Amino acid sequence: MPARVTQNGPGTGQGQVGSLWLYRDTAEIAGDSVMPNTPVGHVETLTVSTPVTAADLAGGNLYVALYLETFHITSKSWTADQFSVTAQLDGCAVPFLRTLVIDCNTGAVPCHADTTLDGHPYTPTGPVGQCDQPNAGSV
């Protein structure tokens, strides 16, 4: 997830002036810092990229924070823009749950229901298959 920051002044940055962080609940899991001692007019794109689980995405356990210094020795202001988030799931185009109804006598599957991971109805597009089992640190 990138975010562009511009130091508008009027003062220059002093030491560490800002950062972009990704949190899982309250734990920092990835971050990128603004160049220290930024001059007025400095433009920089911060980028955070790290593996996360599909459960964290679906469960709303991920948070983003952008910190920028507005006063340390002198005042300064910032513009933050061009922020976006992209997630790519490895092993599955879109994870969803398929519930099958199985006839106990014949073993036939007369019907099924597809839902999102949080239980809402879902209609798959394209081929449907088994997702790979994610490892502990990625999707």
Rank of each mutant, 00 (worst) to 15 (best):
P2W: 02
R4K: 15
R4S: 15
T6K: 06
N8H: 09
G11W: 04
G11H: 00
G13T: 02
Q16F: 05
V17S: 13
G18C: 01
S19M: 03
L20A: 04
L20N: 00
W21Y: 09
I29M: 09
A30Y: 08
D32S: 13
S33N: 10
V34D: 04
V34C: 11
M35T: 15
M35L: 12
T38I: 05
T38V: 02
G41L: 09
L46H: 10
T47M: 04
V48M: 02
S49F: 00
S49R: 14
T50V: 15
T50Y: 09
A54Y: 06
D56S: 13
D56P: 02
G59Y: 01
G59H: 00
G59R: 03
G59S: 00
L62G: 05
A65Y: 10
L66P: 05
L66I: 01
F71G: 05
F71T: 02
I73Y: 11
T74F: 11
T79A: 13
D81S: 15
F83T: 13
S84Y: 11
V85L: 12
C92L: 04
A93Y: 08
V94R: 08
P95F: 08
L97M: 11
R98Y: 04
T99W: 03
L100E: 12
I102Q: 11
D103Q: 06
D103A: 00
D103L: 01
D103N: 15
N105S: 07
A108F: 12
V109H: 04
V109S: 10
V109C: 07
C111S: 14
H112C: 12
D114I: 06
L117R: 00
G119D: 00
H120V: 12
H120M: 13
T123M: 08
P124W: 07
P124S: 06
G126M: 04
G126W: 04
G126I: 01
V128A: 06
V128G: 01
V128P: 00
Q130G: 04
Q130D: 10
D132L: 13
Q133I: 12
N135Q: 04
N135W: 09
A136L: 12
S138G: 15
